[in-house]
């Protein structure tokens, strides 16, 4: 019961303090789940993102369900997801009533500009730590570069890139290559 509440609250904080969703949530997930709670590892997070990309639905919710399920089964997945969506429900409902005034407020606009800078720095930092964790040798370095190039310069869907990577891993393993 205590951990269910902790899951709800952790994801409430993640949902309530992240701007932009999906990937911009990664620094917050890393802080709450890996550094503060030690619930999952950075490798786990990358795996969840990979699965979350290939399965339908909002990626942030998929990751929340995954982490919650790993900790406390189905009910854990539900608690995490409810935590993730609660701040949106509260904040967006209030905003929907006076949206235009909010967006037109010049101080809000200045603040949002400042947040953008921090989000960029946080994301850069996250890619750096994720890269250190996942790039362990020549093969994985090539995979990271191909993933980046594939996403930026080709219209290949993300799902396809992830699936091809998985198949490549299996083929390399069968060929006796050690992926370290």
């Amino acid at each position: 019961m205590k951990e269910l509440l902790e899951l709800y609250l952790a994801f409430f904080r993640i949902g309530g303090l992240t701007f932009g969703g999906g990937l911009t949530m990664l620094p917050m997930l890393k802080y709450e789940l890996v550094e503060k709670k030690d619930w999952v590892s950075e490798d786990d997070l990358l795996d969840y993102y990979a699965v979350g990309q290939c399965t339908p639905g909002i990626i942030a919710v998929n990751v929340a369900t995954f982490v919650g399920y790993k900790r406390k089964g189905v009910i854990g997945g539900i608690c995490s997801t409810l935590g993730m969506i609660s701040p949106s429900l509260i904040i967006v409902s209030i905003l929907a009533m006076f949206l235009q005034q909010f967006m037109d407020n010049v101080w809000v606009q200045h603040g949002v500009e400042g947040i953008k800078i921090v989000v960029c720095a946080l994301m850069l930092n996250t890619v750096l730590t994720m890269g250190k964790k996942s790039i362990t040798g020549k093969l994985t370095a090539v995979a990271a570069i191909l993933g980046f190039v594939g996403a930026v310069f080709t219209p290949v869907p993300t799902v396809a890139l992830v699936i091809v990577a998985g198949i490549a891993g299996i083929v390399l393993n069968k060929a006796g290559k050690e992926i370290v």
Binding site: A50, Q53, C120, L146, G147, V149, A151, V152, V162
Partner: peptide, 28 residues
């Protein structure tokens, strides 16, 4: 095989995240 698959998927996801960061830089 599942472990080998994910060992290759992880760096690709890192690359994907890097590309998304590029997109965030572009819009922001």
């Amino acid at each position: 095989y599942v472990r080998a698959a994910f060992a290759m998927i992880r760096p690709v996801v890192t690359g994907l995240i890097a590309s998304a960061v590029l997109g965030i830089f572009e819009t922001a």
